[in-house]
Design a protein around this nucleic acid. Structure first.
Length: 108
DNA sequence: CCCCTGACGGGCG
DNA sequence: TCGCCCGCCAGGG
């Protein structure tokens, strides 16, 4: 628990509604671009063992499931499909429709 | 202590 | 519109 900076990231990810998705960059921007989008991805990698964090709802800016490999098989894709998020070729269909912007929809 | 890489993103040619 | 390069921070070799 040395990385308290990541706690903010985890908190935001946990707040992503079911059936919605967001991007690494959106979270980074919402938190003031601390370290940029890469740190968000790094945080996801670090918290991967924490099942309370819906990391599968976080994709890159074009809606591609870049972290799919880290879930093993089609795990990430299946989780999204279960929530009603259509995935085609490792990419979210109608990404903008499912997109959840923490900056706009999450006002402390 | 230096160098490289990474679940990214924006800018430029 | 597509592709390359640079910047961002943290961790491992």
């Amino acid at each position: 628990m040395k990385s308290n900076r990541f706690d903010d990231i985890y908190e935001v990810v946990r707040l992503i509604p079911r059936g919605r998705v967001t991007s690494y960059g959106a979270i980074a921007t919402y938190l003031g671009a601390k370290g940029g989008a890469r740190l968000v991805g790094w945080a996801m990698n670090a918290c991967h063992q924490d099942v309370t964090i819906p990391a599968h709802r976080v994709v890159n800016r074009i809606g591609m499931l870049t972290g799919k490999a880290f879930f093993g098989g089609n795990r990430m894709e299946e989780l999204l499909q279960e929530e009603g998020v259509e995935v085609k070729n490792d990419k979210i269909v109608n990404f903008e429709s499912h997109f959840w912007s923490p900056a706009e929809e999450l006002l402390h």
